[in-house]
Design a binder for these strands. Structure first.
Lengths: 184, 184, 184, 184
DNA sequence: TATGAATGAGTGTTCATTCAT
DNA sequence: GATGAATGAACACTCATTCAT
């Protein structure tokens, strides 16, 4: 693939994430093309169906997330890192969901998405384990439960905007629930 | 309004809830009309835009929820009632969201929806308060937090199917978080 | 179906035959709509896919042909009627083929087309039999052979326009071949 | 023109005949390029419009046909050679028509096609004349009538598949018609 | 009032053609 | 000269909305 084609592909993916985040997955491919500064034909050359476009935009999004997560993981106090990561994932999730939902509703995520999701999962697992090793986070939950709960928090924000202090308290409830040790 | 008009209006609303629950809000108005056994013109006479149709279907849905909540509230042990209510809301949430999301994405919910949501809120508040009065539920959360968290749980299930035991543990974390008393 | 809908349906079919005869089956549905004086949506309401439009235009065309054939059959000398019918079919065939070819290339003719073609076949069989009863037309050919040869003559005209006297002589060869009795 | 350019031109023409024969003239230029193992740009360098590509593919096809006809003409009994030639032309005609039809529908064949067609015509005329000299083929038909009839037979087979015996009898009728002498 | 036919802008997608590499 | 990426007009088809019956 030529250098300019690579650049265009990248621009289309960036534009797609923006547009889908702002307008949802029903946004027109033409709008994505306009935002990327290319013709619609170019979008379709790189991503022959809208599904392909959504899927690859999702992959790009997940890869960004994984990279940010790795940065978070590397420095802080493990429990604090977990908190930061949860917040970050919650913040990005509405965009992620806008892209993932139509895929799920139509034959499920593809291979590329699953692979990218797995890359995210690996980092989250690492952060979680290190937090659990401090003894300040209960050990009977794993990455799946984290993902599940974070997803929930995230999606809840998609539903009517929520007052910041409400969200903060809700997250506290969640984090309190995560702390040691499960009481009956 | 004539009696048959009233009946038609009701049938359209019931059909709309069914159709939107099954196919999402992108379902065509014609499908709603077909399901209701009326012509599309009749649907548009009662609800001049698709937005109106979605909004009133949502109101009907919320009113059903409020009624069910009132029934739940009246009998059981208050903490058990809270648990039941959470489960019920979680079960209904996907349908609710299917209708609410496009409204939120386009100028927000209207007055009628807010009023209906408020009626739900009143019942949930009552159940929560009685649960808190038992001392077995932390007092620093209110209806908003409950709604927020429940919504999250509900929506999280819409996102990739989740293994039952994962969900169970996640709900336990949430409920643990809700119990007295916030630590640290 | 309402009276105006019936009228529109008829106008669309007439327009479709004209347009497909002039421009071939690749003519756009929008052109058909324009010619019929309706919106594209109306065309698609009556004929949900282009295939449907082609198929029903073909049926209308075949029904016209059958009716004309019946008129031809009723009066003349049987052998002359056969000659007239062959000429008429040859003249109409290019239009017929324009519509039939894409259908054949994509899953074959549908039931309605087959039924209409059968109605034509019945009339042609009748004319042929009466011509054979005069003893002036060989008896070892049937409707299928007639159709096959006429189709050939017809399609040959679609390929480069042919000088009239060339066509006349070619048809004479064909008719000579049809006359009694097959030699060696 | 450089040697590799000449080679590419030839490969494109061969690929074009294959592709148009298989998929019809609506096949994309990109498919032709892929089959030829070159880029689309190369196809368009040699044949600036699709019309040019079709026209030159047709010329190549007709030149192949003329060569084959010359071989046929050289050996056999003249009447048998005519029969063989008719069969060969009928077999190739669908491919020829696939390329010729869109040209005819859009401004007619160009000069190069006419020249190539004339080269074919010369060979056919020769075969016909020698057959007529045997006295076993009527003298009032010329190459045009042969072409016309053969084209018809060929195209008729493109239209709904025909039972073999129907075709055989139809061809007999045609050949009977060609034999001496025209009866009234 | 109820109906469902008509409308036409909008969507995803294809493809001949152009042009930077 | 060769390449294949970019372009955008065109197409089949959908659907919210209007309006004649």
């Amino acid at each position: 693939m030529r250098a300019d084609a690579v650049a265009n592909r990248r621009r289309v993916l960036v534009a797609a994430q923006e547009v889908f985040a702002e307008q949802g997955a029903e946004a027109s491919t033409e709008e994505v093309a306009r935002r990327a500064g290319v013709g619609t034909g170019t979008v379709f050359r790189h991503f022959p169906t809208k599904r392909d476009l959504l899927e690859h935009a999702l992959v790009a999004h997940l890869d960004d997330l994984a990279e940010a997560a790795r940065a978070t993981a590397s420095g802080e106090d493990p429990v604090e890192a977990l908190r930061t990561l949860v917040a970050d994932m919650a913040g990005r999730a509405p965009t992620k969901l806008a892209m993932a939902e139509p895929l799920l509703a139509d034959d499920g995520l593809g291979e590329a998405s699953h692979a990218a999701a797995e890359r995210v999962r690996v980092v989250v697992a690492e952060v979680l384990e290190r937090a659990q090793e401090t003894g300040r986070v209960r050990r009977d939950v794993g990455v799946d439960e984290i993902h599940f709960l974070v997803r929930g928090i995230a999606q809840a924000q998609a539903f009517l905007p929520v007052a910041p202090e409400v969200r903060r308290r809700a997250v506290e409830v969640l984090l309190d629930g995560l702390r040691c040790a499960p009481r009956s």
